[in-house]
């Protein structure tokens, strides 16, 4: 069955058909939630909640990009979670690595063709970027995560964020600028090959 048939079957209440969609999109949904929330456990909860909500509200899906519709539910769930966290700030019981990365067990980062040095560099890079992402306003963060981290085009990101294309464009530009400024603060932590051009020329 293709995606449209799966959606139609799921709209009739077939959970198995919906679970095929879950399997297709769970990686993307989890990564978007993780980059927006900056923390794995919250991202896990947000992803699960988003899929449950998507199944229950599938009758409201009126065609178009299912990916964008689903990611809108994920990002809205993340916004809610961030608002909740703002109201009730929590302190972690177990310290995490910089930027909320679980640096002690970076097994998920492992790439079979990658040496330990390269792996360490990527862990450092990922942690630095996540830390800078966490400092961005959530709307800017969302635009950057969708376009730069997930490789979406502007119109798809605009659908997810339910904002005009021009708004996404300007938010992305500002997010990139702020992220760049932030990453310059991590210059010495980043491996040489990841340093930004302006660092090299200075």
């Amino acid at each position: 069955m293709d995606e449209i048939q799966l959606i139609q079957a799921a709209q009739q209440g077939e959970l198995e058909a919906f679970n095929h969609l879950v399997i297709s999109y769970q990686g993307l949904a989890f990564n978007v939630a993780y980059r927006l929330l900056g923390e794995a456990a919250s991202a896990e909860d947000a992803t699960q909640e988003a899929f449950i909500s998507a199944f229950r509200n599938l009758h409201r899906y009126r065609g178009g990009s299912f990916k964008a519709w689903l990611l809108r539910i994920v990002t809205n769930g993340c916004y809610d979670e961030l608002r909740r966290q703002k109201r009730r700030p929590q302190t972690e019981l177990e310290p995490e690595g910089r930027g909320g990365e679980e640096a002690a067990q970076p097994g998920w980062l492992a790439d079979p063709g990658e040496g330990p040095q390269e792996l360490a560099e990527r862990v450092e890079l990922s942690a630095a970027i996540q830390r800078c992402l966490n400092q961005l306003e959530v709307e800017f963060r969302a635009a950057l995560v969708l376009v730069d981290v997930q490789g979406m085009d502007y119109s798809e990101a605009a659908q997810v964020l339910k904002r005009p294309l021009g708004t996404v464009k300007s938010r992305l530009a500002r997010a990139r600028s702020r992220l760049q400024t932030c990453l310059q603060g991590f210059a010495e932590l980043l491996p040489d090959r990841f340093r930004l051009n302006s660092e090299e020329t200075e």
Binding site: Q26, F30, Q48, R122, I129, D148, L179, Q180, L196
Partner: peptide, 24 residues
């Protein structure tokens, strides 16, 4: 050039493997 380098950097951020299946 700076912007391009930064974007390349962000694009190198690895995708995290989901810790479990989210099937319902």
């Amino acid at each position: 050039k700076d912007l391009e380098g930064m974007r390349a950097l962000v694009r190198r951020v690895p995708q995290r493997r989901p810790p479990r299946s989210f099937t319902l």
